[in-house]
Write a protein that binds this DNA or RNA. Structure first.
Length: 478
RNA sequence: GGGGCAGUAGGGUAGCCUGGUCCAUCCUAGAGCGUUUGGGACGCUUUGACGGCAGUUCGAAUCUGCCCUGCCCCA
């Protein structure tokens, strides 16, 4: 399949690096002949599968149920919620024909599924005993993006949209669900070792039809932010429109309150970008398609012995639950090292005659730490090594983020801050001041109520108008 | 949204300005055979390309137009 030939551009040229690593590490093939639509390579798809399994596990543990709604939404349902339409109408694909005959009801390819799901919720929900209802699905969605498309980041077909849609009795219950979702997303990104900044999107930037939106942003190597999760409190906007009501304990019909929250394959873009290096991917063990690669070092006449030894190792580690692979291809060991480093395998084990004689295995992790470990205790050794590797990866990413966040106490400081990262500024909350900040600095006001260990929640004078302000996130976003 | 630049084998390139000597260069990858294997092995043999459509021309990878696709910069 695809393989190296030349090498990866340095990560300091992030844009070139990103474009290259996607095919060199066999994540996505961008050569599909439709703009903004790309193909998953098997290795990328395996990574996707493990990432989404982490997400499914978290949701399932938190009493969500997986479901599946149709891709096609009839126009009259789609057009019901006014604000929602306004937010999406410019980017909806319409199916207008069946064969050569024009459809009497045009069908939208879902840009998101509220209007597919909520008419059914209206049928399903009768009583307070049906609440809360917490469903999710992982589906593709379509948006006719007019801006520059980019694999995994800005797509016309989002192939991997995990969207949860919950229904609650009261606004406060829904608010609690928003917080549960934020906590879920936090622990999801913790498993990916990707540090995030949580903030509340300004009103003009919230989800169309929501009361408010909480977002998770990652900071990419070039300092731009990537929105990698959103949680929306929908209030009763959609339930009023779609007539989602329930009978309360006293027999009264009440309007339900809703939330929805989503994560897309941008989560994978973040894993790739935050951890990768000049040699390729660096994957957290929790989602690496291959967690351990065993490279047999075949020298002279001991080939069969070495291969048998490698197979026994694979068997033992596989039985212990690790995704393990022996690379017995007819290549030089060095070529295999480069190959698996490009694909981000967390731990490499090398076994050759010397190791067999010494009763050891050479263990080298993807950050370059090398040690000889006891063959007899291999399962425990591997567990410890992977855990340590994950911790280092997380610490490295945290340090990188801490380095990219700077506090700016005046307008003049912001351009410097956002050149290679994000700025935290005090902001009074007015759209006017946000506009001034954006105009003067070329960066956007992304969120308020910033939740990050690097940000002091106490405020100060607004950088624009000097009235009382609170910390807000300013940066250039993807 | 505005403005650039580009598209040549699977990937990367030379050729384009100044049309013919290009049945298209080189690197890499792929296939076959052999010798190798503790950080990208080597030898021999071999497959494979001018984004699409139209136009100009005796003749187009090269010039013109449109379309598609991609990248960069600015908003």
């Amino acid at each position: 399949m695809e393989d190296e030939g030349g090498s990866l551009p340095g990560k300091s040229d992030f844009s070139a690096w990103y474009n290259d690593i996607l095919w060199r590490a066999e994540i996505m093939d961008v050569r599909y002949p439709v703009k903004g639509i790309y193909v998953w390579y098997p290795h990328g798809f395996a990574l996707r599968r493990h990432v989404y399994q982490r997400l499914r596990d978290l949701l399932d543990e938190a009493d969500h149920q997986e479901t599946l709604f149709p891709l096609l939404i009839p126009k009259h349902e789609f057009m019901k919620e006014a604000e929602h339409i306004k937010g999406f109408e410019e980017e909806v694909y319409w199916v207008t024909h069946g064969g050569t005959s024009e459809l009497d009801v045009p069908l939208a390819l879902r840009p998101t599924s509220e209007t597919a799901i909520y008419p059914m919720y209206a049928l399903w929900i009768r009583s307070h005993a049906d609440l809360p209802l917490k469903l999710y699905q992982v589906v593709n969605t379509f948006r006719y993006e007019t801006k520059h498309t980019r694999p995994l980041i800005r797509l016309r077909e989002i192939t991997s949209f995990k969207e949860a849609h919950t229904v609650h009795a009261t606004w406060e219950d829904a608010e609690r669900q928003v917080e549960e979702a934020v906590a879920l997303y936090r622990s999801f990104y913790e498993q990916l070792c990707v540090p995030i900044i949580i903030s509340r999107r300004p009103d003009w930037d919230k989800f169309p039809g929501a009361d408010y939106t909480i977002a998770a942003d990652a900071v990419m190597p070039d300092g731009r932010t990537l929105q990698i999760g959103t949680v929306h409190h929908l209030g009763d906007h959609f339930s009023k429109t779609f007539d989602i009501t329930y009978e309360d304990a006293s027999g009264e019909q009440q309007c339900a309150h809703q939330t929805c929250y989503g994560i897309s394959e941008r989560s994978i873009a973040a894993v790739v970008s935050v951890h990768g290096d000049d040699r390729g991917l660096v994957l957290p063990p929790s989602v690496a398609p291959v967690q351990i690669v065993i490279v047999p070092i075949i020298v002279g006449k001991r080939e069969d012995e070495v291969l048998a030894h490698a197979a026994a190792l694979e068997q033992e580690l596989g039985a212990a639950g690790y995704r393990t692979k022996v690379d017995s291809r007819a290549l030089r060991p060095g070529a295999k090292y480069y190959y698996w480093e490009m694909r981000g395998v967390p731990l490499r084990l090398e076994v050759g005659p010397r190791d067999i004689d010494a009763g050891t295995v050479m263990a080298v992790n993807r950050l370059g730490d090398k040690s000889a470990v006891d063959r007899a205790a291999i399962v425990e050794e591997v567990a410890a090594q992977l855990e340590q590797f994950r911790d280092r990866l997380r610490a490295r990413a945290e340090a990188e983020l801490a380095h990219k966040i700077t506090l700016a106490s005046s307008m003049e400081e912001i351009p410097g801050s956002v050149r290679e990262g994000v700025a935290i500024v005090n902001w009074c909350g007015s759209e006017d001041c946000a506009g001034q900040i954006e105009k003067a600095t070329g960066a956007a006001l992304l969120g308020s109520e910033v939740r990050s260990q690097y940000v002091d929640p106490d405020g100060g004078p607004c950088v624009a108008c000097r009235k009382a302000g609170r910390p807000a996130l300013v940066g250039r976003s993807y």
